[in-house]
């Protein structure tokens, strides 16, 4: 099994994968508890617009993905607060709008379909050494922010209004969480792919919720599930030449089903 680490691309994929697993499962806990799971899908598609622009203009896809995802997160929060629109409707509109724009840009730009495919479903071949640096830097900052505000974010997820009346700056923190989540999603689309990152954010937490334990344990379980599925997924992806995102998602689904069965009628 160690032979796979003889390849540079595989070492890079593993470092990136581990960082992403940590980020996705920790941020996913707050996203799921806020009942805001759909935001990850939408932001991932907005990140894809960034990738499309980068492929046509020959920029670094990771940077542009981060920029587009963050702008989209801000737009979502703005639309939600300024117009009294239903959140899920806002998310659905932006999701399909982003995908349409990304596809149009790519087809206008010529035949980039192959590389776009790897951003849709993830590829262990796609992580460059520059990407690792970007993932490490933004990943550390995002994780630090999440941990720093974890008590507040947890309170807000439990009861937004009571959190507000006890003096927590709910609007600012919602904005911050949306920004951090968008960065994490953009960082993830190289390995997981934009169509599948939502699964890695949401499913580990939903699986850990089946065990009916307190906040800290739930977050730890979801972290373990995220790490396990990313590691296993990348190994299978290497040996069977499968898209990494898809294999990772199958692994996390497997953990979810086991969790459901183990905790039946608990």
């Amino acid at each position: 099994m160690l032979e796979m680490f003889e390849y540079d691309f595989m070492q890079r994929a593993f470092i990136a994968g581990i960082i992403i697993a940590v980020l996705a499962s920790v941020s996913g806990t707050f996203v799921v508890l806020k009942r805001y799971s759909m935001i990850s899908e939408t932001l991932a598609h907005s990140a894809l617009v960034g990738v499309a622009v980068a492929l046509v203009a020959e920029f670094s896809p990771l940077w542009t993905a981060v920029v587009f995802a963050v702008l989209s997160a801000w737009l979502i929060e703005y639309l939600r607060s300024a117009f009294s629109l239903y959140s899920d409707a806002v998310l659905a509109i932006l999701l399909s709008g982003s995908l349409a724009i990304a596809v149009i840009i790519v087809s206008l730009g010529g035949s980039f379909n192959n590389s776009l495919f790897s951003y849709l479903f993830g590829s262990i071949l796609s992580v460059s050494s520059d990407d690792i640096i970007i993932i490490a830097i933004f990943g550390t900052i995002s994780l630090a922010i999440l941990l720093l505000f974890s008590k507040e974010l947890y309170f807000i997820a439990y009861d937004e209004e009571v959190a507000k009346t006890s003096g927590i700056k709910v609007n600012r923190l919602n904005f911050l969480l949306a920004s951090v989540v968008s960065i994490i999603i953009a960082l993830s689309i190289t390995i997981i792919g934009s169509l599948l990152i939502g699964a890695l954010m949401v499913i580990p937490t939903v699986a850990s919720l089946q065990y009916k334990v307190g906040f800290l344990k739930t977050m730890l379980l979801s972290l373990i599930f995220g790490l396990l599925s990313v590691t296993a997924g990348m190994i299978f992806s290497f040996y069977f030449s499968l898209p990494s995102g898809a294999t990772i998602v199958l692994c996390v689904l497997f953990i979810f089903i086991i969790s459901l069965i183990v905790n039946r009628k608990k």
Binding site: A163, S166, F215
Partner: peptide, 22 residues
């Protein structure tokens, strides 16, 4: 009913807003 919170988790929320950053 599925929210992951012990009684202690919930009561501790009452202290959250009092905390300074870091």
């Amino acid at each position: 009913a599925s929210f992951p919170a012990t009684v202690l988790d919930i009561v501790k929320m009452g202290r959250t807003a009092k905390k300074q950053l870091f």
